[in-house]
Structure formats: structure tokens, C-alpha cells
Design a protein around this nucleic acid. Structure first.
Lengths: 117, 117
DNA sequence: GCTCGAATTCGACAGACATCGATCTAGAAG
DNA sequence: CTTCTAGATCGATGTCTGTCGAATTCGAGC
């Protein structure tokens, strides 16, 4: 709802001139910003971003054992990245026997995409 | 361009069954993923995300002295965040006399928004 | 020149992060 | 019950990040 507020720097030069138009408060409050930033942060790693890219393009759920050879990192590290994505709400997983299946939860991404406009 | 590849886990149970459909390589190559992740990472902090939000809603260029009181952090810290955003190509700045003016460069955000779909 | 003020840069520090190898868990097959 | 395997967790390590206060830069006015 964008409340305006006034502020002028203490220096009044050039005489009486403002340094810029009055600024508006952020539309996104701190809480929403924290949520959006959480998603953005989770995407802020090349491997995680590629992971999401693969999972998104893949219709169904993808087994971890298929993901490992795609990336030049160890399996524990990949597991760590998947956990980060899960904690950010970007992906979720199911276990079936020995295998673990990951899939994208589009809502989180849509939220960020919506803000980006 | 999505090359397919085959991979089956060493366990063949349930007999002969695949753990999942063959996975496709990421559409985004490592280089583009790195670029997109760089932008996402810069947005991965609540204050920076709110900063971008303010700058985007503001038509012109905004003076730093107007931004400082919006956030509950010191002015050097804000300067640090602005630098991060500038390094990610999300904002740019101009100096006029004593004052520094920041504005959003929409291209970087559009790139990420495009990937998010 | 001198002083003041806006903004950046510097130095320090605590906390978070990416990565690795080793270990642990638990389902499946024999 | 034993063995094998997929995946998660643990412990360690080096790097990066957010924050602060102090110092620095640089333009403006006196």
C-alpha cells in the first residue's frame, strides 16, 4: 500500500533542492521479503539451479541415482543441495524402497516469478 | 537442447524395472546456470530484495540518503548490499556531487523471470 | 586552505555455506 | 542373519557473508 514519507538530506545544496523524489516504502513487507529471499537464496547456486531445471523439465518424479552422474560433485554433496531445496519448499521427495524420488513444487517458484513480474 | 542418456542403478529390483524414466540433461548449461544463480543469490537476502523492490517501484533514480532510513541497518552495511546488487548487474549507480543515485537495470531480473517461466 | 557531510572502503568477527570422505540407516536379496 | 546398495547424516575444513565501527575519499561551501 506504499506509504509516502519525507526526508531531505541535511545538506541543502543546491539551495533548497531535494536530492530526489520522495521515496516510497517497500511494497513487500519484511516477512514476505524474507520468504522470497529464502527461495531466491536456494536458487543462488549453479548446481541447485540446474537441479531445479532438470526436475522441472521432467514430468514425473526423478530418482536421485539418475541425478548424481549429471553433476561433478559427490553424492553426499548432492544430497545436501537437495535438502536445501526441500527446506526452501522448492522440491519435495518420496521414498520408495531404496530409491528416493524428487519433484518440483511449483508454488514456491511461482511466488518468486510473480514478484519479478 | 536436451540430450537423453541412459542409466540404471546397479540394483535390478524390482526385477528389470527402472527406477524412473530416463532423465534429460539440464536445458541450462553450466555457464547460464552460473549467471542466473548469481542474480538469484543477490536477491537471496531480505534487505536486498526489499531494496530492489523500492527501486523498481520508483520511476527514477533514488538517492542513497533516502534509502538508509528505510532499513534497520547502518549506512555502510547498506552500501555493501548495494554493491552486491551492482556486482550482480541488478542495479547501477550514478554520482552527482555528494549524492549517489541508484536505479534498477531490468535486464538481469527479466532473465531470471524468463527462466522461472 | 579548512571544515562538513555523503558515500565508499577497510578491518574484524561471528555465523553460514559448499565440499569432501567416512559413517550410519534401512530396504532388498540371498 | 548376512550382505549389498541407495541415500542421508556426520565431522572437518576452507571459503564466503552480513554486520559493525573506524578510516578514507571526494565534492561543496565557507
Amino acid at each position: 500500500m506504499s506509504v509516502e514519507f519525507e526526508l531531505t538530506p541535511k545538506t541543502k545544496r543546491p539551495a533548497g533542492e531535494r536530492c530526489c523524489e520522495p521515496v516510497v516504502y517497500p511494497d513487500v513487507d519484511r516477512e514476505r521479503a524474507t520468504r522470497l529471499a529464502e527461495v531466491a537464496k536456494a536458487l543462488g547456486d549453479p548446481i541447485r539451479l540446474q537441479l531445479v531445471d532438470v526436475l522441472r523439465k521432467h514430468a514425473g518424479k526423478v530418482c536421485v541415482c539418475e541425478l548424481v552422474p549429471l553433476f561433478d560433485i559427490g553424492q553426499p554433496t548432492l544430497s545436501h543441495h537437495l535438502k536445501k531445496l526441500r527446506e526452501a519448499g522448492i522440491v519435495d521427495s518420496e521414498r520408495q524402497g531404496l530409491w528416493a524420488y524428487y519433484y518440483v513444487r511449483p508454488e514456491a517458484l511461482e511466488d518468486l516469478a510473480g514478484w519479478l513480474g
